[in-house]
């Protein structure tokens, strides 16, 4: 799965937790979950759990700590997928 495909999956995952339709439509690496997408901090846990289910990966606490924007989230998913695949 490449970066664009991961971002497109993320868009679907985040959609139920963000009312910022415009910001969500134009997400890129710099999009911040809380500042730009106005995701409630208690729903960030849901996003992490949805990512685990969708990509069949496990996100540890240190990785979750960095998951505040699209860029670091994509990097974490890419790394975990690589570990799983390798």
């Amino acid at each position: 799965m490449n970066k664009e495909e991961i971002i497109s999956e993320l868009k679907t995952i985040i959609q139920p937790y963000s009312e910022e339709a415009l910001a969500l439509e134009s997400i890129d690496e710099n999009t911040d979950f809380i500042k730009d997408l106005k995701v409630n901090s208690a729903n960030l846990v849901d996003i992490v759990l949805d990512i685990e289910e969708r990509f069949k990966i496990e996100i540890d606490n240190d990785s979750m700590a960095k998951m505040l924007n699209i860029k670091s989230t994509v990097e974490i998913i890419e790394n975990k997928l690589q570990v799983n695949g390798g």
């Binding site: 409630n40 208690a42 729903n43 759990l49």
Partner: peptide, 18 residues
């Protein structure tokens, strides 16, 4: 709002937070 916005009884939720 918390009642409808968050389902903390979801599997794995509490373990990630507490």
């Amino acid at each position: 709002l918390a009642k409808v916005q968050s389902n903390w009884q979801r599997k794995g939720y509490l373990e990630k937070v507490f």
